[in-house]
Design a protein around this nucleic acid. Structure first.
Lengths: 182, 182
DNA sequence: ATCCCCATGTAAATTGTTACATGATTCG
DNA sequence: CGAATCATGTAACAATTTACATGGGGAT
């Protein structure tokens, strides 16, 4: 009867509840949807059943919220929940797991050579422009949320500013590799 | 009766067939499994039905291979397949799509603060070690496959050497952000 | 009263994985 | 021949998304 290991999204939500403090499922969804660096859609179809599940397993606790809505509940992380979060974060990742599992930009860049030569530069330019747009959103989010989160490192990972910078460097290297061929 | 847009994995396989030239489904799987920068497991359960599907849709063509195995077939990309590949690669990605969609390392790093303070440095060290291991595999793969692929940029994106470098920089910045807190 | 937004929930479809089954070939 | 390996295929399962349904509250 070994309880199955929680999924990535389940642990991620657990982490968010830990980080944000007590909040409703709806507030958590809004937070995820508003963040510039989200890996999941935070759709109702995933979040509501997921949080109910986590409560049944004793990783979240909830109490009914006054005032608003249907069975509106406020969730907080339990002691067992924090332990589960640590069990998820802590163990070192295997080499296969430190490399990104799913990445549309890289997948496509890999076959850039299938495009007519004249289009490749424009493709890279458009990707850089999209990344700059993300950079702007990250800054805006950072300014709006810096106070709500903990330390600087936490804010940096939550906003995704680390990610954007890495990707811009990645793109620059790709461009320079392409340039050196003529 | 608009044919649905091919999935990411379907397009990725299309790209690989284009890049590798005519090959069997098995050879393609081996290539994917041997590559250090794979985003999919390349399991039989995904690849075989997928390539049969792509052929039914006219994006791949195949002919029976002599000699070996059951219905062993050699696939090549068709004209329509190349067009579909270009339609997938070409269009600029929206900002939401240039950011990685799924990333275990970043997900966990985001909640590093949930670990006891004394464990955080070790966690980052272990992640760096795992990335160095990937770096070694990338180099070995690069040396073994450089000749089989086209230009330098193609080899770099296929091996994932761009990715490892970016991630090591990402990790270094994370570490430095954590250090500046005490 | 009605309309719109907040908030929760459900059902179906999509996509991929794991585990297994099966057939052909090669090698001792 | 028998075992290991190459090669294809299937069936059950898991996770998430999309689209939809529903209910409560406030504003006009």
């Amino acid at each position: 009867m070994a309880a199955r290991a929680p999924s990535e999204l389940e642990c991620f939500v657990l982490g968010l509840v830990w980080q944000l403090g007590p909040c409703s499922a709806y507030a958590l969804r809004r937070h995820m949807q508003g963040s510039p660096s989200t890996q999941w859609s935070a759709s109702g179809g995933s979040i509501y059943p997921l949080m109910a599940r986590l409560e049944r397993r004793g990783l979240l606790e909830s109490r009914a919220m006054a005032g608003n809505g249907r069975g509106r509940r406020e969730y907080r992380i339990s002691g067992r929940g924090l332990a589960a979060l640590r069990e998820w974060v802590g163990p070192p990742l295997r080499p296969e797991a430190v490399t990104t599992a799913y990445d549309p930009l890289r997948s496509r860049a890999r076959f850039l050579g299938a495009l007519p030569a004249g289009q490749r530069g424009a493709w890279i330019g458009a990707a850089r422009e999209a990344l700059h747009e993300v950079e702007r959103r990250v800054r805006a989010w950072h300014d709006a949320n810096a106070s709500a989160l903990g330390d600087a490192a936490e804010t940096m990972t939550a906003s995704g500013e680390l990610d954007v910078r890495s990707r811009l460097e990645w793109l620059a290297r790709l461009e320079s590799a392409r340039r050196h061929e003529g």
